[in-house]
Amino acid sequence: MTAVFTLEGAGLSYPGVTALRGCDLEISAGERVAVIGPSGAGKSSLIALLNGTALPTDGTATTLGCDFARTRTRAARRTRRQVGTVYQQFDLVEQLRVVHNVNAGRLGYWPFWKAAYSLVRPRGIDEVRHALERVGIADKLEARTVTLSGGQKQRVALARVLVQQPQAILADEPIASLDPRLGAEVIDLLNEISAEAGTTLVTSLHDVDMALSRFQRIVALRDGHIVFDRPPDAVSTGDVEELYAAPDSPGLVG
């Protein structure tokens, strides 16, 4: 199996803050991985290294064979197009209609004039409609994004990734802003979509049960480094308790 994402001794730090240190990780094509850990463990930073929105300050990060730190803009852009990302806050343009927000997923493939004209008359409506059908909100095509509920917005974000047709999907706390029932639906949808197209999926989650019940591989982060990396059935209750323990008082799960 070819590696989609590779981290070798990767670290990420800013003046005064160390987000990640010494991370080694290899994720192969078609894997579905959940990244867990307490708040501030570095989950978002890890996702950022994988899609190249941050560059490692130590070690290397390779995505689909591309090391963003050593790649020219154009080539990097080609790689980025192959990685779709879903965010906790959906990151949609609220002022625009849903169709434009979905189309945003494939702007990287369009020449400027087409992208500009699409704001006047949306291009490729059929594919957008198809993607929205897939995530269950086909009726919202013309709706203004600001009018949607949180769950609907996250579905728009999923549709956006669908039209991007990436080789890998990253999701950064995709359900943190949703209630549990909606959260489960979104995670199931993400898994289905990835399974259908054989897409690699890496999701950071704070809901451990969700991670253990729905993913093939669990990567646990704490204080910026990887604590364990194993299949869910090899993760014990003790592992989880230790992962989430308050730093100064071991044994107390908070």
Binding site: T53, L96, A104, L107, G108, W110, A116
Partner: peptide, 27 residues
């Protein structure tokens, strides 16, 4: 203007001008 959509578009490999056109200009 809210930057997250712009950042997301760049992360998805959208050229800068187009990303700006679609995510910041509408705002």
């Amino acid at each position: 203007s809210p930057r997250r959509p712009y950042r997301a578009a760049l992360a998805a490999g959208t050229p800068r001008a187009i990303a700006l056109l679609h995510t910041l200009l509408p705002v």
